[in-house]
Amino acid sequence: MIVVAGEALIDLVVSGEGQRAVPGGSPANVAVTLARLDQPVRLLARLGTDGYGRQLAEHLSANQVDLDWAVRAEQPTSVAVATLDASGKASYEFRLAGTADWQWTPQELPELTGSSATALHTGSLALALAPGAQVLEDLLARERRRDGLTVSIDLNLRPSIVTDRAGEQARVRRQVRLAHLVKASDEDLAWLYPGRAVPDVMAEWREAGVCCAVVTRGADGALLLAPDGSMHEEPAVPVTVVDTVGAGDAFTGGLLAALADLDALGDRPADRLAALTAAQWAAVLRQAALVAALTCARRGADPPRRAEVAALLGAAS
């Protein structure tokens, strides 16, 4: 079982067709992607009891995301206004003050020791916004020390919300040391480290103890720095883009699902990841890129199911 921790919010998607309220939030989108790829997944989230919170719970349950560890919170549900431009690319405005996602307390977190969890994934605003971010960071530190599962982080920075670049640099520097797998976008790194080359940042993370670093580059594909120091590159899958909502989250879900299929998640995580061959890393990247592309070809965060991905990967081989 893969455990995903973090926000589940409502995206108010605004386009030329009007606006619609759809379930979203980066960690929640990753969880749905994993479930659709037939990976057992449990979401550690704080879900409001308002109408939006009920909509989120229904959506997640309908997609076979396990909510046994979800907290039913008194605070309202967070809302992200996603405005689509003519090309389908989304820009975001967030309504987060006093909402449920960021109010974690240590007592609300489960004990992962002895559970069936093979990986813990989190990131995005959940690791950036107080007071809950520190609670989740403490959980990551605990699990990294225990060495009983793979710890994964997707930076997914939001400079429109957390504007302190120096503060974010310090946070990321601290948190990546707790992860075996770190994923970011080239846009994340361009804002976080202006003027720095992407491979140099990835190498720095490896020196800090990250086993595998992945950077997505939109239409330019993705880079992966493997545990042995080798760099792997995967081109983007050509697709007619409807919109980019949830594409990065779909990539992350596809990546984690591919690693799970290779038995590369679990205890002794560094050893498991180091055991993968170059061909296996290429296959992992290929699946992640395909899952992201198929999501871009659809409206909203609507990742594909396992059979669809398997059919296309089989046709390409």
Score class of each variant (00 low, 15 high):
47 L>N: 07
151 V>L: 14
144 R>G: 07
187 E>S: 11
132 G>H: 08
5 A>V: 10
274 A>Y: 02
220 D>L: 11
206 R>V: 01
252 T>D: 13
149 L>N: 07
103 Q>T: 14
140 L>H: 13
246 G>R: 01
81 V>T: 13
168 E>D: 02
11 D>W: 04
200 D>H: 11
36 R>W: 04
245 V>F: 00
315 A>H: 09
233 E>P: 01
230 S>P: 03
256 L>H: 01
220 D>C: 07
289 A>N: 06
80 A>H: 01
43 L>Q: 05
71 V>P: 00
61 S>N: 04
250 A>W: 13
43 L>F: 06
35 A>I: 04
174 R>T: 12
134 Q>L: 10
62 A>V: 05
303 P>S: 08
261 D>S: 08
139 L>V: 09
210 V>Y: 10
169 Q>P: 13
282 A>D: 06
201 V>Q: 13
265 L>A: 09
207 E>F: 03
89 K>W: 05
87 S>Y: 11
12 L>K: 03
165 R>K: 10
93 E>V: 09
72 R>I: 02
261 D>A: 05
198 V>S: 00
86 A>E: 15
91 S>A: 13
118 T>I: 15
310 A>H: 09
278 A>Y: 05
106 P>C: 11
147 D>Y: 00
163 T>Q: 11
229 G>V: 07
205 W>I: 10
175 Q>E: 09
289 A>S: 15
249 D>I: 12
256 L>S: 02
213 A>R: 06
39 Q>I: 09
87 S>E: 15
307 A>K: 05
231 M>D: 06
187 E>M: 01
29 N>G: 02
299 R>W: 09
18 G>P: 05
167 G>S: 02
218 G>W: 02
49 T>M: 15
288 A>S: 10
225 L>C: 03
301 A>E: 02
300 G>Y: 01
113 T>W: 07
238 P>H: 08
22 V>C: 01
95 R>S: 10
103 Q>I: 04
237 V>L: 07
158 R>Q: 06
257 A>S: 14
97 A>P: 03
38 D>V: 04
184 A>L: 09
20 R>S: 15
236 A>Y: 04
166 A>C: 00
73 A>N: 06
13 V>I: 15
261 D>E: 14
166 A>N: 06
246 G>F: 03
45 A>P: 02
179 A>I: 00
172 V>S: 07
304 P>H: 06
194 P>Q: 14
224 L>E: 12
279 A>F: 00
260 A>F: 11
188 D>G: 08
169 Q>G: 14
98 G>E: 12
251 F>H: 07
74 E>H: 01
110 P>L: 03
246 G>A: 05
204 E>F: 02
80 A>D: 00
140 L>K: 12
174 R>E: 12
173 R>F: 04
237 V>K: 07
64 Q>D: 12
303 P>A: 01
148 G>V: 00
143 E>G: 05
22 V>S: 01
91 S>D: 11
171 R>L: 15
306 R>V: 05
